[in-house]
Every structure is written in structure tokens, then in C-alpha cells.
Amino acid sequence: MSKTHEIKVTKRELQRKGASRRLRHAGVIPAIVYGGSAEPVAISLDHNEIWLAQANEWFYSSILDLNLDGKVERVLLRDMQRHPFKQLIMHLDFQRVNENEALTASVPLHFINEETSPAGKAADVVVTHELKEVTVSCLPKDLPESIEIDLGNLEAGNIIYLSDIKLPKGVEIPSLAQGKDHDDAVVTAKHGKEDAADVVEEAPAAE
């Protein structure tokens, strides 16, 4: 189960683009909360606080508690607009979550024990992480911040697929229900090509 993280927000009136520009100059990010049975609500957030938060994985995959004057709404980040070259967040979209309804979210994958595995210790084996995150479906209370994949027994020639991932209780990977064609490779361990420079041919002995 993922932890929740509280972020203080302020309600704002829906205005034209000029107003959003003034907010950004004041160090504030315009955002919107939508979904569920309630109407969309325009809010604003402190840019410095969000800039620090967005450097963490949990900001993208965890349920967030938006605190608006003491009233908390549970949401997931659904979209973030960044400035093309400045360290500036332009806008955020949050979707309300219902505790009794399954949601879909992208969860990061954490790979452990690769260096101590047979494949990891072999000099001629290349271990490739084909996926860095996976889309899961679950109730909000079961949403993990990340999923660990233990590579301790990985050997050369092995392939770990989505169906091989040990998921937390209550968590599913929706794409697997679409058939084997959607059981994507997550990790591969292949022998690397022999470097031609390391191959030394013995010259034939002179008669």
C-alpha cells in the first residue's frame, strides 16, 4: 500500500491565460482537480514546494492528499506541463479517486540484486531493463509506490516477462488480460558480442 502525501492548495477563480501568467510570475502553479461526482475545481500550488516534490517517484505514482482550507481530496497526478527549457512547471491536472473504485496508474519498477546474480557477475552478459514502469489496476488503498523485481537468480539467456512479476495483493496488470502478445519482456540477459580486438589468431608455424 502506498503512503499518502499532503499538499496544501488554494482555490482560484477560472480566468484567462493572462491570470495564469501572473500566478507563475508570483511563484504559483495553476492547476485543476476533476473527476468523481463533483465539479472541476481550479486551484493553485506553491511552485517551490511542488518543484521539490516532483523530484520524487511518489509524486507521479502515489495518491496525494490535496488540503484546501482543511478539506482534503484524494487525487492522482494525471498531467504535468513543463516549460520547454526553464525549470518551471506550467500547469497540473489532478484526478479525484474513489476509495471503492479501481483505478489505473503507472508504477515504477525497482530492480534489486542484479549485481549478485549469475548474469550480473558474468563479464560477457548484458542485462537490459526493457521497462522502467508498469500500468496497474487496483483499489486506491492497494496502490504501491513501486514494485520490486528480484534479479538474484537471473542467468544468461533468461527473460523476465510481465506475467513473472510478483504483484502485491489486490494489484493486477490489465494488459495481461489481452493475451500473450501483451506479456512484454521486462528484463533480458543476453551474451554480449565478442570484441574482435580480443580475438587473436595464431599464425601458422613456419616450416
Results as ranks from 00 to 15, higher is better:
S175V: 10
A206R: 13
K17N: 09
V199I: 15
F85D: 04
R96W: 00
K166S: 10
E172A: 14
E73S: 11
E114Q: 14
E155F: 08
S62A: 15
L131K: 07
A189N: 01
G18C: 02
H191L: 14
A206V: 15
K11R: 14
E130G: 08
G70K: 09
L151G: 01
S2Y: 00
L92F: 09
E73P: 01
R22Q: 15
V200N: 09
A205T: 11
F85Q: 04
P168A: 14
Q54G: 03
E13C: 03
N153W: 01
K11G: 13
N48Q: 11
V134R: 03
V127I: 15
L167C: 06
P84G: 06
P108R: 00
A42L: 04
G120W: 05
K71E: 08
Y60L: 07
R74M: 04
E130D: 12
F85V: 08
T10D: 14
V200R: 12
E101N: 15
A19M: 03
A55G: 10
R82F: 03
Y34P: 05
V41S: 10
L23W: 11
P84L: 01
T188N: 07
D46E: 09
H110W: 07
L162Q: 13
A119N: 00
I50H: 07
N67A: 09
A197W: 06
Q15I: 06
V75M: 03
P140Q: 02
I29N: 06
D69V: 03
A38N: 08
D93W: 00
T128W: 05
G36S: 02
K121E: 11
N67L: 04
L151F: 00
S37I: 10
A55C: 07
V126K: 05
I147R: 03
E133L: 02
D93K: 03
E207L: 14
Q15K: 13
L45I: 04
A102S: 12
V136W: 07
V75I: 02
V72E: 02
I165M: 08
R96H: 01
E101W: 10
L109T: 06
I32H: 08
E202Q: 15
I165C: 02
K11Y: 05
I43S: 08
K17E: 04
Q95F: 00
D65Q: 11
L14I: 12
G157T: 01
